[in-house]
């Protein structure tokens, strides 16, 4: 791999992993939603994310040039070789926990893909343009529910606030950059994440205000994903996800 392809590979993997791991969590809602309509809505988000993951994994495999498939990328790596942000692997918890995760992530993704759409890398730009359309819906869904739960009953307000507070510490690393970012940014390929943070924060504040909820306090931000250091949850996700591929390595499904 040339240097530039190596960098793009890492970037593509990161974006693919975010979508792939979050889709896994959302799919766990199947048959568990609070109403049938919402069961379908959450798994619909999962389907969008699976499609997105497939796009970025396919590109990663292409950049790597070792003849791997997108399935090899998704199913044959270990815990330390995943680069999704920690927030993606957080358990679904109750419905408010899932909505808080969706709010933080989809607002971030909205601003992110809006920028990546202008990437000088054509594949990234095309994938971003397609993703952006979906993310707008994801963001509206999350904001609507945040407002409904925040301004619903006393119980829902409490649950929503607690969920937002607990996940806040995983939002910092969404904006974290390393050498991959700076080198790709220099070539107009990647997004300057530091620029996104104020927009993201303002957007979240606006939603929370309408929802009669308070912005969580900044106490400590957990990081690790850029180095492939995760929470304990990821290993279990992979154990489930990769079971058949690992148990029957020669099988095609």
């Amino acid at each position: 791999m040339t240097d530039i392809n190596q960098l793009k590979y890492s970037y593509s993997l990161r974006l693919g992993d975010n979508a792939w791991i979050l889709s896994h969590r959302l799919a766990e809602w199947c048959s568990n939603g609070p109403i049938l309509e919402e069961d379908l809505a959450l798994t619909n988000l999962a389907l969008d994310l699976i499609g997105r993951a497939q796009g970025f994994y396919k590109y990663a495999a292409e950049l790597e040039g070792k003849g791997k498939s997108e399935d090899d990328i998704a199913y044959r790596r270990n815990e330390r070789q995943y680069f999704n942000n920690l927030i993606m692997e957080m358990p679904n918890g109750n419905f408010a926990d899932t909505i808080a995760r969706q709010l933080y992530v989809s607002v971030f993704e909205y601003y992110f893909f809006r920028e990546l759409k202008n990437s000088k890398d054509e594949t990234f730009a095309a994938l971003a343009a397609k993703t952006l359309k979906e993310v707008k819906y994801h963001m509206a869904h999350a904001a609507d529910w945040t407002i409904r739960l925040g301004d619903g009953t006393e119980e829902s307000h409490k649950k929503m606030q607690k969920a937002l507070n607990e996940l806040w510490m995983y939002t910092g690393e969404l904006f974290e950059m390393n050498d991959v970012d700076s080198e790709l940014m220099a070539q107009g390929v990647s997004v300057d994440l530091s620029m996104l943070k104020p927009k993201w924060e303002q957007h979240i504040i606006d939603v929370l205000k309408e929802a009669t909820l308070a912005q969580p306090e900044d106490i400590y931000m957990q990081t690790g994903s850029r180095q492939g250091i995760h929470t304990e949850h990821l290993g279990h996700i992979l154990g489930d996800m990769q079971y058949l591929q690992r148990a029957y390595p020669d099988a095609k499904w």
């Binding site: 896994h24 766990e28 048959s31 379908l40 619909n44 389907l47 994994y57 399935d71 199913y75 499904w253």
Partner: peptide
């Protein structure tokens, strides 16, 4: 079986079917 579907395509098809 959703979380254990053995390929990206299989997972997509299964999830869409359940939907």
């Amino acid at each position: 079986w959703i979380t254990r579907a053995p390929s990206i395509r299989a997972k997509q098809i299964l999830l869409a079917k359940i939907q």
